[in-house]
C-alpha cells in the first residue's frame, strides 16, 4: 500500500484544518472502503486524517423527536441501539443485512454514506471508467452489467449502483447530514447528498473539498408506523443487493394513510420513490395497489444487457415488502 502523511485529529476543527481543501487528503474512519481502495491503488491520498478519536460516537434523541447519530457510530452499534431497533426498524434491518459482523464492527455511519461503488470496472484500475478517469468512458454500459449496475438514475457516462443498504433506509426515513468544513458548518438534505452521475460521474456527493460529515439526523419516526427492509441478492448473506426496498407505512383499518418507499441495488443513488408513495397514500392495502405503485416506481427504468431482470425483481421487492407490512 502506498504511503501517506498521517495526522490524528483530536477535534473536528483540527480534523478539518489538517485536511484542508486539498483533494489529495482523505478522512479515515472505519477504513473499510478507504484502505481497501488505497490497497488496490484506486484511491491515492497523500494525507490521511484519522478521525477515530473524535467525540462523534453518540446516538441522541432530540427534543423535536429526531434522532442524531454521530459520524463514528459503528454500523453494529447503530443497528443494535434499542431506540433505532424500535423506532426505525427498517434502518436496523438494513444495517444488519449489509456486509459482515466484523466489517459492521469497523464501518461507521458517515463512512457508510461515503462508500464508493462496487463496479468491477471502477475497481480494476485498467478499464474505462468515468468515475476513476473522467472522460475515459464507461466499460460497464457495454460490458458485464448484471449485479452492481443500475436501471434507475443512470446516464451514458455511468451506471454503477450505490452499494449501501443503510442509505436506502435513511432515504425512506428522511434525514439531514451535518457537515463541518473550512467555511464552517452546514446541513444537507439526505436526498440531495448523493448525486446522479449525469455528465459528471466523478462527482458522487454534495461535499465541498475538505468538508467532514459530523452527524446524520433522522427525521422523527411516523406515528404508529411499521417498517421493513427487504433485500434480494445472489446468496443469503454477505452480498450486495440485486434489489432491495425500504418501506414505512401507516394504516387506518385497511387504508394506507402514509407511505415511504426507497430502493437499493437498482439506482445510481439511494433511490426514494416519491411517485410510488403518492400511488399508495389513501388507497386500500391490496395487491393491486401494491402492483400499481411498484410499476410506477420503475416507469423511468432503463435496462442494460444483463440487468433487465432488476425491473421485475425491484417491483417484487416493493410488493412483497408491502404485503408483509400490511398483513
Amino acid at each position: 500500500m502506498h504511503n501517506f502523511d498521517y495526522a490524528r485529529a483530536d477535534s473536528t476543527r483540527q480534523a478539518v484544518s489538517s485536511h484542508g481543501p486539498d483533494k489529495q487528503a482523505a478522512y479515515l474512519a472505519g477504513g473499510t472502503t478507504l484502505l481497501d481502495l488505497v490497497k488496490i491503488d484506486i484511491m491515492r491520498p497523500e494525507q490521511v486524517v484519522d478521525i477515530n478519536r473524535l467525540d462523534l460516537k453518540r446516538i441522541e434523541t432530540l427534543n423535536d423527536g429526531r434522532t442524531r447519530i454521530g459520524a463514528l457510530v459503528t454500523n453494529t452499534a447503530l443497528a443494535r441501539d434499542e431506540r433505532i431497533a424500535s423506532d426505525y426498524a427498517v434502518l436496523s434491518e438494513a444495517l444488519l443485512s449489509g456486509a459482515t459482523t466484523q466489517l459492521r464492527n469497523k464501518a461507521t455511519t458517515a463512512g457508510n454514506v461515503m462508500q464508493r461503488v462496487r463496479c468491477p470496472y471502477f475497481r480494476d484500475g485498467v478499464s474505462n471508467c468515468n468515475k476513476r478517469e473522467p472522460g475515459s468512458g464507461c466499460a460497464a454500459i457495454e460490458g458485464h452489467n448484471r449485479s452492481v449496475h443500475a436501471v434507475l438514475g443512470t446516464s451514458e457516462h455511468c451506471i454503477a449502483t450505490h452499494p449501501s443498504d443503510m442509505c436506502v433506509a435513511m432515504a425512506a426515513i428522511g434525514a439531514t447530514i451535518t457537515v463541518e468544513g473550512p467555511e464552517g458548518q452546514r446541513e444537507i438534505d439526505f436526498l440531495d447528498f448523493h448525486l446522479l452521475p449525469g455528465d459528471t460521474p466523478e462527482r458522487e456527493h454534495a461535499l465541498k473539498p475538505g468538508e467532514l460529515i459530523t452527524h446524520v439526523t433522522l427525521d422523527a419516526p411516523l406515528d404508529n408506523s411499521r417498517s421493513h427492509y427487504l433485500k434480494l441478492r445472489d446468496r443469503a448473506s454477505y452480498q450486495f443487493a440485486l434489489a432491495s426496498s425500504a418501506v414505512i407505512v401507516t394504516l387506518e383499518g385497511d387504508t394506507i394513510t402514509d407511505a415511504r418507499v426507497a430502493l437499493g441495488g437498482v439506482g445510481t443513488r439511494p433511490w426514494r420513490a416519491h411517485e410510488a408513495e403518492a400511488a399508495l397514500k389513501g388507497q386500500k392495502a391490496t395487491e393491486a395497489t401494491f402492483q400499481k405503485a411498484a410499476g410506477i416506481a420503475f416507469k423511468s427504468a432503463t435496462p442494460y444487457a444483463h440487468n433487465a431482470f432488476k425491473i421485475p425483481l425491484g417491483q417484487q421487492a416493493i410488493v412483497r415488502n408491502l404485503t408483509t407490512l400490511t398483513a
Binding site: G30, V48, T101, Q102, N105, K106
Partner: peptide, 25 residues
C-alpha cells in the same frame, strides 16, 4: 481486502478485519 475474514482478531474485545486496519490507528 476485507473479504475473507482470515485476518479476524479482537480489538478491545470486538472482532474486526485486521487487514483493513492501520496499526497507527
Amino acid at each position: 481486502q476485507g473479504q475473507c475474514g482470515a485476518c479476524t482478531l479482537l480489538v478491545n474485545d470486538t472482532a474486526i478485519n485486521s487487514c483493513l486496519s492501520l496499526a497507527v490507528s
